[in-house]
Design a protein around this nucleic acid. Structure first.
Length: 483
RNA sequence: CGGGGCGUAGCGCAGCUUGGUUAGCGCGCGUGCUUUGGGAGCACGAGGUCGCCGGUUCGAAUCCGGCCGCCCCGACCA
């Protein structure tokens, strides 16, 4: 069997395991400035697949990409009261340029509502100009006190959608639609099961009327916010004076949404699917879906084996599968097996002289650790199904883990004791008062991760909500706030 | 901002208490040979402003003062 792992045991020290696996698998490393991150090719490629999955869906739902500047005058941020209060503590400010002190400091965007709505004021005059359905891919900077690779970095990559609408209903629909897109990408692409809902007032985005969220459970049974879609009402339109003439000839403030999905989700995939051997990447985002490890001794074996490997590689690549032949001479097969497992490659093919002779290939599957011999001619045709199966298996495994760690609390004591003893997600009734929310946090270190999306709708998106539907909340230990 | 840790070769570390002449070890790296079906072995070799500034001393990685930076645990947050 396998040699002892060189990674920390995720069951004993999940945090240490996470940092080590990110580094050893070649996903990312620390940058020079505090909290910054160098995203390495293996990590960036995962992000690129996430980008594509999202961007395709944005386009399909009628959005266009554009780009706004990273720098804008500090005063712009100050126009929306809650927004400035929420963000000013973590904004990086540029005070000098060209060797001189700037007359007005510039902020590095922590998010772009301010700069975008300031510009939308010029773009929107009539209801005929609406809706604006725009998105931008960019980096942003938030001066966080505590940082972790991918999960919370001072600078991170994301997309931020910013839409403007002529009616409240249309904007709300948009916010819900994009939450749905996020859920689809989280679940179908990253194989991370998420619960959709809305945030409590305290947990809302600064300046939002409602914040819709999708929440995932990581392997330490803690929650991770996986994407948010905000219904901003008319708050930003009022702050930046974005009015339009409606079809009745009246001036009206535009209705807004914004929504974001970040490089955090690379970390989320790591924390949802990894094990003591390293990553388990969902095939949909795996930079390499199939790694072929050739095994040989002498030169004649080498050429025979590599020839067979190349043939399979070409067949797989021809079917659109991301495949790589690991023909490095400086490493032996055992090393390569371990390394590809660490890097989370879903399928590994082993081809040696014996296999070439018998026209077979050994197929090793990462998610369950299985190995089997398969006739070489069947490999190419069967691979798409294997990858689909791996994708589903990761998702289903994550669902059962989450369900095993989801509980209902029927009293305050059972909630408090349950969280302390078992952690995980807890569903319980909540009176809606901030004071009670704070008390729960103080007593248990848990936060309200989400509330039902539509309280009145008995067929609403939240399962297992108690009878008093608009008073129920999912409580998960916050990933970084739990004690 | 509190608490803890660390800064010595690409990475991980020892050396520092008790100052001393060519600053070590493991991994990695280069060359060669033997190896190759679960993280190879041997030999030779390359690689260092000991975080920065100042002080003490005949002599500082080591002692003293100051500064800077990063990581980890909380509070803030995607």
């Amino acid at each position: 069997m396998a040699k002892p792992s060189r990674l920390p045991d995720p069951k004993e020290d999940f945090s240490a395991w996470y940092v080590e696996v990110v580094k050893q698998a070649g996903m990312a490393e620390h940058g020079l400035a505090k909290g910054t991150m160098v995203i390495k090719p293996h990590g960036y490629a995962v992000w690129e697949h996430i980008q594509r999955a999202l961007d395709d869906r944005f386009k399909a739902t009628g959005h266009e990409n554009l780009y706004f500047p990273m720098l804008f005058p500090e005063s712009l941020l100050n126009k929306e009261a809650e927004h400035v209060e929420g963000f000013s503590p973590q904004v990086a400010v540029v005070t000098h340029g060209g060797g001189q002190k700037l007359e007005e400091p510039l902020v590095i965007r922590p998010t772009s509502e301010a700069v975008i709505w300031n510009t939308y004021a010029n773009w929107i005059q009539s209801y005929r100009d609406l809706p604006l359905l725009y998105n931008q891919w960019c980096n942003i900077v938030r001066w966080e006190m505590r940082t972790r690779l991918f999960l919370r970095t001072s600078e991170f990559l994301w997309q931020e959608g910013h839409t403007a609408h002529a009616s409240e209903a249309e904007a709300w629909e948009e916010a819900v639609r994009m939450q749905g897109v996020y859920r689809e990408v989280a679940e179908d692409v990253l194989a991370i099961p998420v619960l959709p809902g809305r945030k409590s007032a305290q947990e809302r985005f600064p300046g939002a009327v409602e914040t819709l969220t999708i929440e995932g459970m990581m392997r330490d049974a803690k929650a991770l916010q996986c994407g948010t879609s905000h219904f901003l009402g008319q708050n930003f339109a009022k702050a930046y004076d974005v009015q339009f003439l409606n079809d009745k000839g009246e001036q009206e403030y535009a209705w807004a949404t914004s929504w974001g999905f970040t490089t955090r989700m690379v970390g989320a995939a790591i924390m949802t699917h990894g094990d003591e051997r390293g990553l388990k990447l969902p095939p949909a985002v795996a930079p390499v879906q199939v790694a072929i490890v050739p095994i040989y001794r002498a030169d004649d074996e080498r050429s025979r084996v590599l020839e067979a490997a190349a043939k399979i590689r070409d067949g797989l690549a021809g079917n659109g599968i991301r495949v790589k032949v690991d023909d490095r001479d400086q490493h032996r097969p055992g090393f390569k097996f371990s390394e590809w497992e660490l890097k989370g490659v879903p399928i590994r093919l082993e081809i040696g002289p014996k296999d070439v002779d018998s026209d077979q290939v050994v197929v090793a599957t990462r998610f369950d650790g299985s190995k089997e011999q398969v006739p070489a001619p069947d490999i190419v045709m069967g691979m798409a199904a294997r990858l689909d199966h791996a994708q589903r298996a990761l998702f289903e495994d994550a669902i059962s883990f989450r369900d095993d760690n989801m509980h209902e609390a029927d009293s305050y004591d059972s909630l408090r004791e349950g969280i302390a003893a078992e952690g995980g997600f807890w569903v319980g009734a909540w009176c809606g008062e901030a004071a009670c929310e704070n008390r729960v946090n103080k007593d248990t270190s848990a936060t309200i991760r989400l509330l039902p999306l539509e309280p009145e709708d008995p067929g609403g998106p939240l399962p297992r909500v108690r009878e008093n539907r608009n008073r129920a909340g999912y409580l998960g230990k916050g990933l970084l706030t739990a004690g």
